[in-house]
Nucleic acid binder design. Structure first.
Lengths: 244, 244
DNA sequence: CGTACTATTGAAAGCGGTCAAACCATGTGG
DNA sequence: CCACATGGTTTGACCGCTTTCAATAGTACG
C-alpha cells in the first residue's frame, strides 16, 4: 500500500551504505591510501579484467554495462555513493561488466584479502556487506519486475523515484537534482528507445508531475508519480499518503 | 560464438553449487536435521516473513515471485538444485519474495547464525557463499539485459538455453528435459503474454529448433538457438510470418 | 562560431498484447 | 469406462504501445 511497494531501497540502503566504509576504517585497514578519483568517461573496470577486490563509491556516479553478443552495450546498473562496485568478480575472479564514471567521482578500494579479513574480524562489516549484497539482489528483482511488466511511463516513473530515493538517502534533495546520465543511458537502462524516454518525460512535464530541462530535474508531484507506477491505466483518486 | 557470451552460469554454477553444502557439512553443523521435503505448490517462504536463515535447493525446482503494487504476481527467479534461497532476507531480516515449489523438492536449511559461523570458520563455505551471491548478481544482470533488449524470440531462446545449462550442470541431459513451470510462469518470468510464449515455441518447433509437447522439451539445434539469441533480425523473413 | 553530441518532436510501421474461442490433459465421480 | 469439470495450452484476429526513421533544435566545448 505505502511507498514500500515501490522501492525496497528506502530503508536499507542508507544504513549499510555508511556502515561498510566506517566498519572497514575502524579496523585500520589503511583505507586512506586506497582512495582514488576518476573523471567523466573514465573506466573503473572493464569486462575481462581480473578481480582484485571491491570498491565503495564515495561520491559521484557510474554506470555498469555489458557488451552483449549482438555488440551493443547494455547498462545494467547505476552506482551512487555508498554502493559497492565490482562485486560480480567474486564468482570467477574476473569482472564481467564494464564500469564507467558519469561524473567526477571518488571510490575506495578494498582488496579481496582485506574483505575476507574484515568479514571475519568485524561483525559490522560482515553484516553490512551481506546487507548490501542482499539488498542489491532485492533491487535487481524489483528492476526485473519493472522491466518485464511495466509500461514505458511506469519505467520512467520508477527510475525517477529510484533516483530521488538515492539522493534522499545521501542527504541531498530528493525533489530536485541533476541527472548524471544521458537520455540514451536512461533508455538503454530501461530497455526503451531514447525517443520514448523523451516523450514520457515531456508527457510528465505536461502533466505537471515533473519539470525537466536537460539534466536538471524537479519532482513536482511525488504522489502522482507513485500512482503512475502502481497503476497506469486507472488513476484512482486517493490511495495513500506517503513518505518523504 | 561460444556459449560463453550466452550465459555466465556455465562455469561458475556447478562448482559453487556442490561446494556450499559440503562445506557446511564438513563443519558438522548438523545439516542432516535441516533437510525438508516440499511438494508442488507448497510455499517455502512468503513475503513479509522474518528471516531465519538461508536454504540450499537439493532437488526439484521452485519459483520466486513478488506481488506488485498492481496486485499481480511477478516471477523474478527460478531455482534449481544448488541454488540458494532466501538470501534476500539478509538486508532487512524480512523476506520480500514468495518462494513456491514447482514439483516435489528438498531443501537444506542453514540458520543465520550458522551462516555467520561458517563464514568465519570455513574458507570453503565463505568462498562458495560469496561466489554464489556474486554469481546471482551476474545472472541478474544478464537477465535484465535480456528483459530490456531482447525480442520475444530471444527471450524464449535465452530461457531455454538457461534451463539447458542448469540441467547440464546438474549432470542431467541439457538436450531433453521436463519444464517444471507452466507457460504462464514462463511468460510471467520473461515479461510477455503467455500466448506469445506459445507462439514462439510453436515457431521454434516449426523451424525444427526444438520439439515441445506439453512440459516435455527437446532441443534439436542448439546452434540455431544461440544464433537467434545473438541476432534475431536476420531471421525475420521466416520467423514471425503467420503462413500456415 | 563551427563541430559534435545530445535532446526533442512528428509520422509511419510493426511487434507483441488483449480478447476470444477452441483444444487438450488430467482427475473426479457416476 | 465414460461424462464432466478444471486448469493448462494453442491459435486466430484486431488493436495499441513502442520502435524506427527522419528531421530539427538545443547545448557543450574547442
Amino acid at each position: 500500500m505505502t511507498s514500500l511497494d515501490f522501492n525496497p531501497a528506502s530503508n536499507a540502503s542508507p544504513w549499510s551504505k555508511v556502515c561498510l566504509e566506517s566498519a572497514a576504517k575502524s579496523n585500520n585497514f589503511m583505507l586512506g591510501n586506497s582512495h582514488r578519483v576518476f573523471h567523466t568517461r573514465q573506466a573503473l573496470l572493464s569486462a575481462g579484467e581480473s578481480f582484485q577486490g571491491i570498491y565503495i563509491m564515495r561520491s559521484g556516479s557510474a554506470k555498469a554495462f555489458i557488451t552483449s553478443a549482438c555488440g551493443d552495450e547494455c547498462i545494467t546498473r547505476f552506482f551512487f555513493p555508498g554502493d559497492l562496485l565490482g562485486v560480480d568478480g567474486f564468482d570467477e575472479h574476473v569482472h564481467n561488466q564494464n564500469i564507467v564514471f558519469l561524473e567526477t567521482s571518488s571510490v575506495c578500494f578494498i582488496k579481496e584479502s582485506e574483505v575476507y579479513n574484515l568479514v571475519k574480524s568485524s561483525d559490522d562489516f560482515r553484516t553490512c556487506l551481506f546487507k548490501s549484497m542482499s539488498h542489491t539482489l532485492l533491487c535487481d528483482s524489483m528492476m526485473m519486475m519493472c522491466l518485464s511488466s511495466c509500461s514505458s511511463e511506469q519505467k520512467v516513473a520508477h527510475f525517477i523515484l529510484e533516483l530521488a530515493n538515492n539522493f534522499t538517502s545521501q542527504g541531498l534533495s530528493g525533489k530536485e537534482f541533476r541527472l548524471s546520465m544521458t537520455r540514451t543511458d536512461i533508455a538503454n537502462y530501461l530497455g526503451m528507445a531514447l525517443e520514448t524516454v523523451c516523450r514520457v518525460l515531456a508527457s510528465f512535464q505536461l502533466k505537471r508531475v515533473i519539470s525537466v530541462s536537460n539534466r536538471h530535474l524537479i519532482i513536482l508531484d511525488t504522489r502522482v508519480l507513485n500512482q503512475i507506477l502502481s497503476k497506469d491505466s486507472s488513476y484512482s483518486s486517493s490511495t495513500t499518503s506517503l513518505d518523504s
